[in-house]
């Protein structure tokens, strides 16, 4: 999926980094970094001043700042510390290493994608049922909405533990959590999309005496594609969240497991690295979807 985004022509890249917008983007990043460094000083101040006071009571304010940005176990690490750790954990290590963030991101990504696949299929099937069967429309929708009000953090450990007890471990339980989260936007978007043909387009099919399946494949599905992709972008992002949440209770491999062990050992730098890795992974996934959308819509004659 990522390769599609990589090989996608300038149209997609144009979305990612539109020309002439570099300066504003850089400015925003610079402001965020500056604030971050200030915040790092403020949050680490107490610990740093304690440490400095223990060694030499005549410390200066520049000692405090320097100390706050280079602490081994900071409350809030400085951005360059996170960047260094990220670098070391990705480029600096073999992908096969258990400490490589690429490896962990890969584990999370596979659960995310599998869950996304399950969720998308479930979402589309539910939407097709809801659009065609009035009873399903009335009976299913409240349950679908209710399913999303259940806090995932509460049921994820239960699902993992229960499935673990019956011998299902690894990828499947994690992707089920992902699927549970991500079918929802797909259902909502596809119900809207499958109902989007206007009455005239539907009447036209009727004048040809088209069957329900023909109307579905030749009219409803093509008309729903823009809605589908809007939903898929939301779905893949929350599918990633689901996978990470599912990794929290069990540990082992994956970005969620890195978050868990980081907080267990008080390794704030490790936690932040894992968070950034998750953010990068999420961006890559969403842009991959955008790339596929661009390719499909271009094939379907969308305006350039």
């Amino acid at each position: 999926m990522t390769s599609a985004a990589m090989s996608a022509p300038a149209g997609v890249l144009g979305v990612i980094s539109p020309r002439g917008r570099v300066l504003p983007v850089v400015t925003v990043v610079a402001v965020i970094l500056a604030l971050w460094y200030l915040l790092a000083v403020a949050l680490n101040y107490t610990r740093v001043s304690e440490l400095l006071a223990g060694a030499d009571p005549d410390y200066t304010i520049s000692d405090v700042i320097k100390g706050a940005w280079t602490m081994e176990r900071p409350v809030l690490p400085a951005p360059d510390q996170i960047a260094t750790d990220l670098w070391n954990a990705t480029i600096g290590l073999k992908v096969t290493s258990k400490r490589s963030l690429v490896y962990h991101a890969g584990v999370t990504a596979s659960a995310t994608l599998l869950g996304f696949l399950f969720g998308t299929i479930l979402g589309i099937v539910l939407a097709a049922g809801i659009v065609h069967v009035r009873t399903l429309d009335r009976s299913l929708m409240p349950w679908i909405i209710a399913s999303q009000t259940v806090p995932i953090l509460a049921i994820a450990p239960m699902v993992i533990v229960v499935l673990g007890n019956v011998g299902i471990t690894g990828l499947i339980p994690k992707s089920l959590i992902s699927a549970y989260l991500c079918f929802f936007p797909v259902t909502i978007g596809m119900v809207k999309g499958l109902r989007s043909p206007d009455p005239l387009q539907m009447d036209l099919m009727r004048t040809y005496s088209a069957g329900t399946m023909q109307v579905f494949w030749k009219l409803r599905v093509p008309a729903s594609i823009p809605f589908l992709f809007a939903s898929l972008k939301v779905a893949i992002a929350i599918s990633l969240v689901g996978a990470i949440v599912a990794e929290l209770p069990v540990g082992g491999a994956g970005l969620g497991a890195r978050l868990l062990s980081g907080s267990y050992y008080g390794q704030m730098v490790q936690i932040w690295s894992a968070l950034f890795m998750a953010a990068f992974l999420g961006m890559a996934l969403v842009y991959a979807i955008a790339g596929i959308e661009w390719l499909i819509l271009r094939r379907a004659g969308a305006r350039a």
């Binding site: 387009q201 036209l204 030749k218 093509p222």
Partner: peptide, 25 residues
């Protein structure tokens, strides 16, 4: 054959494939 007030073409099909639609069905 019914011709509506609006052309009611399917925007994802090119002209040829729009005209092919009834035969396709």
């Amino acid at each position: 054959g019914y011709i509506f007030q609006a052309a009611a073409l399917y925007p994802w099909r090119n002209v040829l494939r729009n005209v092919e639609l009834p035969h396709e069905i």
